[in-house]
């Protein structure tokens, strides 16, 4: 009887260790531990033994039963651990299924990045209409009456108003700066604002020149603000765009609406300032104009220039995105070509 038990135990454990799945395990359990199982059958014959044999054999039988039960559990755990929901092979190099997602226009993306940076500095976002008048586009900005930018060769005047002047001569705005006067007239000073938007100029179009472009302008006005404060605006923009501090220099520049005015250069990011083809061997790249609002501009906005001062910067986002991403044709931005636009995430 004892040998019979041992033989059965060995056979059962062997079967268990090679069982391939849950169903086979169940078969083995039924074969040995089921109501009609082999062990059950042996246990049933215990009654026919002497009390001493019964005690010994009973002990052994219980031990075998525990052993088999444990082995069953153990093998079941092993099988779970080995299991996969995948039948057969899975090719891990198959591309993932992408969520349905669109994207913002690359210029909107950079614009929002800059908005975030400026809002963290307490700047408001402002916008003016695309169509403005000569008064806000030129007169209030201290452009002399005969400035060439006022001509139809430069500015898109609206038909029917092109021979009027001042508030009655309407145009697609040639720059954003007029918005600053509108804002200051309405809100007064001190002021910190950005006013990104579209601007338009009558130009011949090629890979580097557009008639419609997107600008980003920021203005800070405060009591007796020193012009060197303007460096804050410049650095904020360049650091956001290039992801690191960029060396800048401010040099003399002339624009009607600022006094003093500056051309702002950044150290060439291609050669690090050593001089290369991109920066024409100068080591610096002209990136934006800036300066202190001209007293006549502040006066037009209803502010006393002996009290208030400030700083403007204005940067073209089309060119900035081109510089940052390698786009080589500015016309692509307004092409609505989804093959191009969907490259920017």
């Amino acid at each position: 009887m004892k040998e019979q038990l041992q033989t059965m135990r060995n056979a059962c454990l062997a079967a268990l260790s090679s069982a391939a799945d849950k169903a086979e395990l169940e078969q083995i359990r039924l074969r040995y531990l089921g109501k009609k199982g082999e062990l059950t059958a042996i246990l049933k014959t215990l009654g026919s033994l002497t009390p001493e044999e019964r005690r010994e054999t009973g002990q052994l039988a219980n031990q075998v039963k525990t052993e088999i039960t444990d082995a069953l559990e153990h093998r079941a755990d092993e099988l779970i651990n080995e299991m996969s929901v995948i039948e057969g092979d899975l090719d891990l190099t198959i591309p993932g299924l992408k969520p349905d997602s669109g994207a913002l226009h690359p210029i909107t993306q950079i614009c929002y990045d800059l908005n975030d940076a400026f809002r963290s500095l307490g700047f408001e976002i402002f916008s003016e209409d695309d169509i403005s008048s000569e008064r806000y586009a030129f007169d209030y900005l201290n452009f002399p009456p005969d400035h060439p930018a006022r001509e139809s060769m430069d500015t898109y005047w609206l038909k029917g108003s092109e021979h009027e002047s001042g508030p009655e001569r309407l145009c697609l705005r040639p720059h954003l700066t007029g918005a600053s006067v509108r804002y200051l007239k309405a809100h007064g000073a001190p002021a910190r604002l950005v006013y990104p938007g579209r601007a338009y100029r009558n130009e011949s179009v090629d890979a580097r020149h557009e008639r419609a472009f997107y600008q980003y302008e920021a203005l800070i006005v405060d009591r007796d603000l020193p012009f060197a404060t303007g460096q804050l605006l410049i650095r904020t923009i360049l650091e956001k765009v290039f992801g690191k501090a960029v060396d800048i220099r401010m040099r003399a520049g002339f624009f009607p609406f600022v006094e003093p005015g500056f051309e702002i250069d950044m150290k060439c990011q291609v050669c690090g300032g050593k001089g290369c083809r991109v920066c024409k061997q100068v080591g610096w790249i002209e990136v934006m104009p800036g300066g202190t609002p001209h007293p006549n501009v502040l006066k037009a906005a209803g502010l006393d220039p002996s009290v208030w001062s400030g700083f403007y910067i204005n940067i073209g986002l089309d060119r900035l995105v081109m510089m940052r991403t390698g786009v080589d044709d500015v016309r692509l931005f307004r092409s609505a070509d989804l093959r191009f636009l969907s490259q920017f995430r």
């Binding site: 669109g102 994207a103 913002l104 226009h105 695309d130 579209r198 419609a212 609505a336 636009l341």
Partner: peptide, 9 residues
């Protein structure tokens, strides 16, 4: 899932 575009005015 929309792509933003810019066109001319």
């Amino acid at each position: 899932g929309f792509q933003e575009i810019y066109t001319y005015p």
